[in-house]
Design a protein around this nucleic acid. Structure first.
Lengths: 222, 222
DNA sequence: GCTTGTTTTTAGTCCAGGCTAAAAATTTTA
DNA sequence: TAAAATTTTTAGCCTGGACTAAAAACAAGC
């Protein structure tokens, strides 16, 4: 059975909510797919009939294994296209989400596996999110914590973001913070809970708590 | 005003028919977009109201300049994606049409111009069809004739095909005929109007009249 | 355990873009 | 040029996926 772009968006949204909330409530889904709760009820019934979703009235929805496969494939497609747009077409990392959202509905396994090979099987997308492999296995990012949990003296590498809105990403650009950069946390400022990060070259950056909460880092053992 | 994929397909179809027949009849359009004549009438009225099409009942349709711009852009998008699929993702030239048909509806000028730059501004698609530039100018292929018009002794380069069906393209693959190859017409066989082509390395190929009619060539001056 | 407030579902509507069948216009043929 | 054949349009219907408004179910609070 073939899914419409709209149906695919629902599956992705349920997948996302399962990850964060365990179950997808009608209301949360409505917010994610930008529709009314009534429309969601409607669609959930169809997806259930088609075998992609487990659903009982008033109880929220979860994916069947078939549905989860579809969703993971969509995530894979989305993230691979994002890599393509940034690496090959030189888009800024804050500008690729909407386009990838369109591209992810195109073609099937053949196309996406060829794209994957062309990009040299990247493990992460431009925002640091892991790219599921062709078998639908999602590699889990190890040891990542939010930057606001770091202590003075910690050395860490920036490996991802929690908020990938254009606004936030452009803010990181302004602070010159990018994935892969290594910092030492020099000082936590009690007053506003901001922190001073120092790059290897000695450049200092003041990072607000609000920013730090949305930046993912990996502590360096030493 | 934003066009739906379906509307874009109509514009492309009208553009194509204008090129070959001068005007797009209802019936011919229906065949091209795979719909009934009734649906075509319906859509033509909408496209006229939106200013993309000139249309009088029973008289067929033509594009306005706005509509022609859209159509040319779509052709550009289609052909650039075909180049991408063949050159970067290693698809066979007979397998890219359907995918490009999907991809051409994605994104706007920004995406396609970046793709164009990434591909190094190709002039022709994998079937030898010219790619309109960013200003909508379609370069005309000079001096191309159908291969069945060549005479004995002519030296020519294969530069395009009239039929880009998968069936025909795979047939050319079997004959080892590809774009850019240079041949000399050694002999015309009266019996079945087939011809013997000889490659520079001396390899002989027997080409039926039916095939030759659908292969475009440029005569080499010498 | 009722009452209040929230969430979900039902019922009915709308729009895009298809369809069929029948009517009207155009073109071809005799 | 009138009849026949073809093409196009009209009229009415259907499906997917959205919507609103009202009803029903669920969750809390007194």
């Amino acid at each position: 059975m073939l899914l419409s772009p709209s149906q695919e968006n629902y599956l992705k949204a349920i997948y996302k909510l399962e990850g964060s909330e365990g179950i997808a409530t009608n209301q949360a889904l409505a917010a994610l797919v930008q529709a009314t709760p009534a429309s969601v009820t409607n669609m959930l019934r169809k997806l259930m009939d088609a075998g992609f979703v487990e659903y009982e009235a008033y109880q929220g929805a979860t994916l069947t294994s078939v549905g989860r496969n579809e969703a993971v494939t969509l995530v894979r497609k989305h993230r691979l296209w994002e890599v393509f747009l940034v690496e090959k077409l030189q888009y800024d990392w804050d500008a690729v989400h909407a386009l990838a959202e369109e591209l992810e509905h195109i073609g099937g396994d053949e196309l996406i596996n060829r794209l994957d090979a062309f990009l040299d099987h990247p493990a992460y997308d431009p925002h640091g999110d892991p790219i599921p492999n062709a078998n639908g296995v999602v590699r889990v990012r190890q040891h990542a914590i939010a930057a606001n949990e770091a202590r003075e003296g910690d050395v860490f590498v920036v490996c991802g973001v929690k908020d990938s809105s254009s606004l936030f990403l452009r803010h990181l650009d302004k602070l010159n913070i990018a994935l892969g950069k290594i910092y030492t946390l020099k000082e936590c400022l009690e007053f506003d809970r901001s922190a001073v990060w120092v790059e290897q070259e000695g450049v200092l950056t003041n990072v607000s708590n609000e920013v730090a909460k949305n930046v993912l880092i990996q502590l360096t053992n030493e």
